[in-house]
């Protein structure tokens, strides 16, 4: 059984059909890249999976358990983490606290544990470990709002990992990163795959998207127009016309 299974999801905003019968399956230890032009519905699909947008039809399941219809917080606690297209750290909290916030998924909904102490030495150490892992340099005690944009993205990845997810949805994590940071991000994604995470990567940097993925899904106009290994997709005429056309002409 696939870890994450999206079946025939359709989303409409007023008269616009944002997604139409979209299917997506991701296994544990697999990286799937989602590519497509702006407005193809990539972020909308993330919003459906994480419960921010309700589909008019279709289902989303994690290990067979239905996700759609549940609240975003619950979905997160069940093991789906995401980053946002525009990095959204908590600007007034410190870098460290941004990650510690994400370590409380078992305590937040608990009527007693919610009054427990959040910043224990062990959690601070774990937060520092995650920040080091994603390649964010110290200091970690300054407000996150002071970080440059590339570092905000790394922080968001670290924060998402802190929820200890089974599925990680990365929405353009490389946008605004410099070359060495992109390489670092690639290493992080590769490590997560080895660790058995299911990763979905939305990425405008097509070479990166193809390099990092086991499978690629191409979305255009809210529909899946191609799916396959990176090599298959690279050779697909439809894809070249719809999306890669100008670059490969």
């Amino acid at each position: 059984m696939s870890r994450l299974r999206v079946r025939d999801v359709t989303v409409r905003f007023a008269s616009l059909t944002a997604l139409s019968n979209v299917r997506l399956e991701v296994d544990a230890g697999e990286v799937v890249s989602l590519v497509g032009p702006n407005g193809a519905g990539k972020t909308t699909l993330f919003n459906v999976i994480t419960g921010f947008v309700q589909p008019v039809a279709g289902t989303v399941r994690l290990d067979g358990q239905r996700l759609n219809g549940r609240g975003s917080a619950r979905i997160s606690r069940l093991g789906v983490a995401r980053t946002f297209q525009v990095a959204r750290p908590f600007p007034e909290l410190t870098v460290e606290d941004n990650v510690i916030v994400a370590l409380g998924r078992a305590s937040y909904p608990h009527p007693l544990r919610t009054f427990g102490r959040a910043r224990t030495p062990a959690r601070r150490e774990r937060a520092h470990g995650l920040l080091t892992e994603v390649g964010l340099p110290e200091p970690y005690d300054r407000p996150a709002g002071d970080l440059p944009v590339g570092h905000l993205r790394l922080l968001e990845v670290g924060r998402a990992l802190a929820t200890d997810p089974k599925v990680l949805l990365l929405d353009e994590p490389a946008a605004g990163l410099r070359e060495p940071e992109v390489a670092q991000l690639e290493r992080v994604v590769a490590r997560l795959r080895e660790r058995g995470l299911a990763v979905v990567l939305v990425e405008h940097n097509v070479p990166l998207a193809l390099r990092a993925a086991d499978r690629v899904i191409v979305l255009a106009g809210g529909e899946v127009i191609a799916e396959g290994t990176p090599d298959e997709v690279r050779a697909d005429r439809t894809v070249i016309e719809a999306y890669l056309g100008t670059a490969n002409a």
């Binding site: 994480t50 917080a73 997160s76 998924r105 937040y108």
Partner: peptide, 8 residues
């Protein structure tokens, strides 16, 4: 973002 991190 808070909801996405599991905060009810």
């Amino acid at each position: 973002a808070a909801r996405a991190l599991g905060i009810p």
